[in-house]
Design a protein around this nucleic acid. Sequence first.
DNA 1: ATGATATAATTAGCATGCTAATAAATTTGT
DNA 2: ACAAATTTATTAGCATGCTAATTATATCAT
Lengths: 138, 138
Amino acid sequence: MIEDEIRELLDRISAEMRRDYAALLRELNLHVGQEQLLCRLWRSDGMTQIQLSESLNCEPPTITNMVKSLENHGFVVRKRDPEDGRVSRVYLTPAGRNLCEPVERIWNKQLDKLLTGILPEERLLLRRLMKQMADNLS
Amino acid sequence: MIEDEIRELLDRISAEMRRDYAALLRELNLHVGQEQLLCRLWRSDGMTQIQLSESLNCEPPTITNMVKSLENHGFVVRKRDPEDGRVSRVYLTPAGRNLCEPVERIWNKQLDKLLTGILPEERLLLRRLMKQMADNLS
DNA sequence: ATGATATAATTAGCATGCTAATAAATTTGT
DNA sequence: ACAAATTTATTAGCATGCTAATTATATCAT
């Protein structure tokens, strides 16, 4: 069945992308997923952990762990919000900010690999179909 | 850029599929990924752990952990290979075998959700493009 | 036959990611 | 004003998944 093949292909692509990213990001001392969190901060430094968990679509304890790990590696710092004592805001250190370019290089490199041999008009179509699938899931 | 959107959509789809599967599989006392290992055994019971790691494209220690967990839950048993003392073969218990149908129901349900609104001829195209991407990665 | 090499699996340690339960601060309701 | 409810973050515990190092068995070469 076509549908089962699509499921298996999606599983394979997800897993393989993750593996490739893991290998590439290791050179930057990053784990898969951490670059996504940093990406949010590159766009908007000082987000709260709740905002991060909503933006990354994961649970607050996951953010606690990720931020703790990123803080141990010196890529971010946490500061208590002076106006709301419950809130902890996450800020980039210079080291964290400097990861932006190398991470984007990795993204582009991996994207080139993924899309090799797929024509521009096929990419448009692919985007449309993937947009539909993403919307179906949320 | 189209390519960046494709990357972000792929990330979103992967993550969301994983979350959905996690929720659905929890009712069967399974974690995401375990159903893939079981699926290999449904097709060919008694595989070695090395064979499983190659088939699932993950590392041997991961298989050790997964099999240990599945064994604790009574879905598989490990038996030493009588002809090669290094090899440990993994066999389904009746409970593990009985998971086949409910897992396939979950797969089909989730696949319906994913592909809603995508026409048969678009599915063919999608499969071709995904096949290309999967081949690009391996 | 025995020392070296290769293969299969495990252990330790770390990260993402989850749920359930808890702690701390703020807001709401009466 | 103060008790109750809500919000934000953390802790504990478990699973997948990784690498590096280790153990146990089998094979290869001299």
